[in-house]
Design a protein around this nucleic acid. Structure first.
Lengths: 165, 165
DNA sequence: ACGCTATGTCAGCCGCGTTGACATATATGA
DNA sequence: TCATATATGTCAACGCGGCTGACATAGCGT
């Protein structure tokens, strides 16, 4: 704690600093999702669909089980949106080559197109923020965010909860 | 687009870099809310309650209207959680001194205690991440996050949507 | 042959967004 | 003063996407 207050930073300033970080994260996350939400709404989809599309695009041939553990939701929740995405022709399934119980998921060309539309908005936004902030700042951004992510609760006591609010 | 590829960064690397930023933000936001969620659950509250408690604590004597515009939700949504918080004795209302139509909101001592419990988890988490990353990185973190936040859509076309997932 | 695993589905619950309609108290301007 | 506008609250109904619990089926592995 002693080594933290670099310079003339009394404790009650640190407090304010931390709160500011809190809010920054809150607003950034919120604004960051506004544009994709608008696109999704036109297709009668929600953020849950977005996440599934995103991760299937990111990890082609992913199994349902692996996707479940990435998303941290129940199979019942996943299957609702997955079913819609398959029915609408954005995602296909095929049996796993070695373990045929598995259903390997892929984006169709239509799914890829959708993925591109959605993430483009966010990539443009991040790209702008990165460019304006500079390479140095980007490195700091990543470092801090990584630090926020690691070290979870005992992992059995994580309340799953909604990912999108 | 031409001015973006600063230095020897081919485009397909930038793309990957941006995606990484996306995911970092996603996971950080998610992990960041896991601990408060557990506390809230014990009190039969949710993230909506957390946000209200937080902003009332941050802006004592805030009006309902101002709170609504910060949260970006409808009064019907707010009133549900606000009613619970008032009934449970975490928040009080009093008429505005100059405009008596207003209801100025305050945390009670019980509310303050709750606020402290909730945000403490997050402050510790941020503090650790800041400490590990260093002052320089923190500055970058803030810069980028701020860049992500500014410049919205025309503001009438923002789909409100859930704040908590 | 048996049990375990991967997946899917049905049913019902809950939190917290939404829209629309309507009520009340107070402020404010013609 | 009276009319209108504003600040707030409430009722009703809907939608999304989490959840639990139960049960089904196919395929893996011993």
């Amino acid at each position: 704690m002693a080594e933290i207050k670099s310079g003339a930073n009394p404790l009650f300033l640190r407090e304010e600093e931390l709160r500011q970080g809190l809010e920054l994260l809150f607003y950034a996350y919120r604004d960051f999702n506004a544009e994709p939400d608008a696109i999704l709404a036109r297709h009668k989809f929600g953020r849950a669909h977005h996440r599934v599309i995103y991760f299937v695009g990111r990890h082609p041939s992913i199994t349902v089980g692996r996707l479940l553990s990435i998303l941290g939701i129940t199979k019942q929740s996943l299957s609702r949106v997955l079913r819609q995405l398959i029915d609408q022709g954005l995602i296909t399934q095929r049996p796993g080559p070695t373990d045929r119980r598995q259903r390997l998921l892929e984006l169709t060309s239509k799914g890829i197109e959708m993925e591109r539309q959605l993430s483009e908005k966010q990539r443009v936004r991040i790209a702008r923020a990165y460019r304006e902030a500079g390479a140095e700042a980007v490195e700091g951004f990543r470092k801090v965010l990584l630090g926020l992510t690691r070290q979870e609760m005992p992992s059995k006591f994580q309340p799953p909860g909604r990912l999108d609010r």
